[in-house]
């Protein structure tokens, strides 16, 4: 777990790493020669197609001249992901991290999040979590296009008030781990809760690129869920703008993305899910 103790876990690449040369040797020579050929060809061809070819040629040449490629950088794992990869013995790792400060003591935040029945209160795409044995659980969530997504996960590590690590079975199609770390916030401001979602995408770099795209959505959804957890623990209710309890939540449909598409297996047909509004969840349970 040493990777998770690194002080800075931000998974976004620093500008510096983007600017470092990442096209070298033969690849660089090929870029220069190929780009030049494309440029010359485009010049001879003329017209709109020629212009397009010249533009592409210019881009490839620039890649060769500067020795930098933004597209390639996007496919390269971050230092943190490389560490995770080594730590977990995975061939590939894609990770997102989100942190929130909750104005409640560490014990309270830990206890609330450790109680499985509380999770669907603030994770809006999560339908239920069923306990199978002492440490194994069956998760059911609403995935993209209202499909039900289900998976099995077990608690790999549980250090009260410090860390909870959720992990899928090693046989899962998309192996993943969710690490929750609890720390005291400075000046008695409560608890800093960090969630790291890591998965092992199949199919090498292409799979990594696809997973990064998906995790942008998951990251946003995770962020919203953490905000809702904070609202629930601090104010006793989940904030909403409904005029009536029965009304659909006034959030544009485009903002509703699925919670953890990284790790799910779609096993049932699409079905309609009644809109679960904030209001109906928040009343009694807490």
């Amino acid at each position: 777990m040493k990777a998770l103790h690194e002080p800075l876990m931000a998974t976004r690449k620093s500008q510096q790493s983007l600017d470092e040369p990442n096209v070298q040797g033969t690849e660089r020579t090929l870029s220069l020669v190929g780009g030049g050929l494309l440029l010359a060809g485009g010049l001879r061809r003329g017209g709109i197609l020629g212009l397009a070819q010249m533009a592409l040629g210019a881009l490839v040449t620039a890649r060769g001249v500067t020795g930098r490629c933004k597209a390639k950088a996007a496919l390269t794992p971050t230092p943190y992901e490389s560490l995770l990869q080594e730590e977990y013995g995975w061939t590939n790792a894609e990770a997102i991290a989100r942190t929130i400060t909750i104005g409640k003591p560490r014990s309270e935040v830990y206890d609330f999040v450790r109680s499985i029945e509380n999770l669907p209160l603030f994770m809006r795409r999560l339908e239920r979590v069923q306990q199978m044995d002492a440490t194994h659980y069956h998760w059911v969530a609403v995935g993209p296009q209202n499909r039900t997504v289900e998976w099995n996960a077990f608690i790999e590590e549980d250090l009260p008030q410090e860390r909870i690590v959720w992990s899928t079975e090693s046989t899962a199609y998309l192996q993943h781990k969710a690490t929750l770390t609890f720390k005291d916030a400075p000046n008695g401001m409560g608890t800093e809760l960090q969630v790291v979602l890591a998965c092992e995408p199949p199919a090498g770099r292409v799979g990594y690129a696809a997973a990064s795209l998906i995790s942008q959505f998951s990251g946003r959804e995770l962020n919203l869920d953490l905000r809702r957890l904070k609202q629930l623990l601090e104010t006793g209710e989940i904030t909403n703008n409904l005029m009536r309890t029965g009304m659909a939540e006034r959030v544009p449909a485009s903002q509703v993305s699925d919670v953890m598409p990284l790790e799910g297996e779609v096993i049932s047909e699409p079905r309609t899910v009644a809109p679960r509004t904030d209001g109906t969840q928040a009343g009694g349970a807490y």
């Binding site: 104005g103 919203l224 905000r227 104010t235 904030t239």
Partner: peptide, 27 residues
Amino acid sequence: GCGNCEHCQRSDFSCCDNSNPNPEATD
């Protein structure tokens, strides 16, 4: 203001963390 978050506790109610149900746009 929600009255509970650190900002409201400091009486900076207009900096409330919890009163916006659509936090994404301003975030």
